[in-house]
Amino acid sequence: MAARVYATSADYILWSGQAAPAAVDRLLAQASRDVEDALLTAYYCTDADGMPTEPDVIEALRDATCAQVEYQQETGDTGTGAAGRWDSVSLGPVSMSGRKDAPAGPQGLDLAPRADRALRRAGLVPGVIR
């Protein structure tokens, strides 16, 4: 099954009011995976490709994906989760200090606060199996 991507570059431009960043398609694909990781216990209807079918869920996943890209652009994160984790790093002979806050998102994910709110408003997190 192909990876699911919940927003397009046009969605990002409309949502953020900003020009799309370089490699926006790759960033949206990464952000969609981050959003999926936050939804491991979510219950919602999907089509045969695993894409949501309910308009409010489609909107929430689109908005959360756009928010995740925006958050990573603002924090300088490349999607690896490494940005902003240390306030001092040396390479020889290795020294890291001042670990900053750990991710506060669901399941320990570094999920953008606006992405988390979009998913919560749609009732997708915390996931509840009915």
Rank of each mutant, 00 (worst) to 15 (best):
A48H: 08
Y43R: 02
Y44E: 01
P55D: 13
A29D: 04
Y44F: 15
G81W: 06
A19C: 11
E59M: 10
T78C: 08
A60P: 10
G76K: 01
T46R: 07
T41Y: 04
T46P: 07
C66E: 02
Q72R: 15
T75G: 00
L39W: 12
Y71D: 03
A60F: 07
R33F: 05
A67W: 03
A22E: 14
L27G: 08
Q30N: 12
C66D: 01
A64T: 00
T78L: 09
E59V: 09
M51N: 08
Q72T: 10
D37S: 04
R26Q: 15
D25G: 12
Q68I: 13
P52Y: 00
S32A: 04
V35M: 08
V24F: 09
T80S: 11
P55C: 11
T75C: 00
A48W: 06
A22P: 14
A22R: 15
D25A: 14
Q73S: 04
A82P: 03
D25F: 02
A48Y: 06
A31D: 08
M51D: 00
A22D: 15
A42H: 08
S32K: 03
D77R: 01
A20P: 13
T53D: 01
P21T: 14
T65Y: 05
A19W: 07
D77M: 05
A67K: 00
V57H: 07
Q73C: 13
S32M: 04
L28V: 10
Q30E: 08
G79N: 12
T46F: 05
D49C: 08
D25K: 09
Q73A: 08
A64G: 00
A38Q: 06
V24E: 07
G79I: 13
Q73F: 02
L27N: 07
L28A: 03
I58D: 00
V57F: 04
A31H: 09
L28H: 03
I58L: 12
D56Y: 11
D47P: 12
P55M: 11
D49K: 05
A38V: 14
A23C: 13
P52D: 00
A48S: 12
L39H: 07
G76R: 06
A22W: 14
A23V: 13
D49R: 06
A20K: 15
A82H: 01
E54F: 10
A67E: 08
Q30W: 09
R33Q: 07
A60S: 09
E59S: 13
Y44A: 00
E70R: 05
A29L: 11
I58E: 11
D77N: 00
E54S: 10
D37F: 09
V69C: 04
R33I: 10
E36Q: 07
E74S: 09
D77Q: 04
A19R: 13
D56Q: 15
A64M: 06
D34C: 11
Y44R: 00
T46G: 02
A67Y: 01
A82K: 02
D47N: 15
T65M: 07
D34T: 09
P55G: 10
L61E: 02
T80E: 03
C66P: 08
A64D: 05
T53Q: 12
E70A: 05
P21N: 13
E70L: 08
A60G: 09
M51Y: 10
L28D: 02
T75K: 00
V35C: 09
Q68V: 11
T53N: 05
V69A: 03
T75N: 01
R62H: 02
G79A: 15
R62F: 03
Q73I: 13
D37Y: 10
G79L: 14
D47Q: 07
L39E: 02
